[in-house]
């Protein structure tokens, strides 16, 4: 009567879909590579054309894994924030993590230009940007955690996070106002997001951080379910609110912060994936939602990336725009079709 296995089938389907999405994502791109050759490389074989082998091994596979990690990480952090704040509008960036990262990168790209060309070579480097984004989001996060420790009311943390976001956004616009058009363009390109810039080495670091965030989430699942009843009930069920709140915030910042640092601020995924999952599975149980969100996030991100590549053409679209263009209509359609929001 109490337990049921009615989720086995959807999970099997999602897993299959994920595998298909990974293969399609790797198979398509600006260079047309025959499907047979793609599969050969994926199974660890060698193919005649070395350039194709190089493209698949060092560009397409890392990019697919990046998309997978970003989608899963942002999806989970969105779920965490929505439950912690019991607010369907919350996403991974409500605590100001992405604006913190933006501020870091803006300071690096535009601020250093204002100060003079001492760091010019460092700015353009990929690592400079990753480090700046990490520092930026880490500082904002540190402020939020310090505040969270002092404030009893969780909703106050939400507002404070939004305020931090406003402040950093304002500073970024001031910087933009005074910087040259090339610098501005460079910053804007970063804000479009890019999944293709990660080497295998970067990917290792990224995967480790995401794994840590997922692990923290795993240990918060029980508390998350209790939080569905509100904080007082959760506490009466033996949940230590402050401790769990901190680990939830930490998990979110690891997941969303690392994604932002490596691929830029990816909009929408974190907000939409949890809604999509709840609508389709019609449950609020986090032990079901969490793995489903991981799978859905990875799948949607892979699909968006495949589309952003504009297969068989030399062009590609900014990933940050594609996620919204593809994702938003899906969520709207689901809400209209079901007529009732599951939250």
């Amino acid at each position: 009567m109490i337990t049921s296995n009615r989720y086995h089938l959807p999970f099997l389907g999602l897993l299959l879909l994920l595998v298909v999405c990974v293969i399609v994502n790797i198979g398509l791109g600006s260079v047309k590579i025959p499907f047979r050759d793609v599969m050969t490389v994926l199974w660890g074989g060698e193919i005649e054309k070395e350039t194709w082998q190089y493209i698949i091994q060092n560009y397409r596979i890392p990019k697919a894994i990046t998309a997978l990690l970003v989608g899963a990480g942002l999806g989970v952090s969105g779920l965490l924030m929505q439950t912690l704040f019991r607010n369907p509008l919350a996403g991974p960036f409500v605590l100001g993590i992405s604006s913190g990262a933006s501020l870091g990168v803006a300071l690096l790209i535009m601020g250093s230009g204002l100060l003079g060309g001492i760091l010019t070579s460092a700015i353009t480097s990929h690592y400079g940007i990753v480090i700046a984004a990490t520092l930026g989001s880490f500082l904002v996060l540190l402020l939020v955690v310090v505040v969270a420790d002092r404030v009893r009311d969780t909703m106050a943390i939400l507002i404070i996070g939004l305020m931090f976001g406003s402040i950093t956004t304002a500073i970024v616009s001031v910087l933009a106002f005074f910087s040259s058009s090339e610098r501005l363009q460079q910053y804007i390109f970063w804000s479009f997001g890019s999944l293709g810039d990660l080497s295998w080495g970067d990917l290792g670091i990224f995967a480790a951080v995401v794994f840590l965030g997922i692990l923290l989430t795993l240990f918060s699942l029980k508390a998350l379910n209790a939080l569905l009843l509100g904080e007082n009930y959760a506490q009466s069920l033996g949940v230590n609110i402050k401790k769990n709140r901190l680990s939830i915030i930490l998990a979110t910042s690891l997941l969303a912060g690392s994604a932002t640092a490596f691929v830029g601020p990816i909009a929408f995924i974190g907000l939409a994936i949890p809604h999509l999952t709840r609508q389709l599975l019609n449950t609020n149980n986090h032990t079901v939602l969490f793995p489903a969100v991981v799978l859905f996030g990875a799948i949607l991100m892979l699909i968006c990336d495949t589309i952003a590549q504009l297969p068989a053409s030399q062009l590609s679209l900014p990933i940050n725009a594609v996620t919204s263009i593809i994702g938003a209509p899906v969520v709207i359609w689901l809400l209209v079709k079901k007529r009732k929001m599951v939250f």
């Binding site: 019991r86 569905l228 009843l229 509100g230 007082n232 009930y233 009466s236 609020n284 939250f343």
Partner: peptide, 9 residues
Amino acid sequence: LVLTEILPT
């Protein structure tokens, strides 16, 4: 406990 507060979900 059974409280007076409204369930958030």
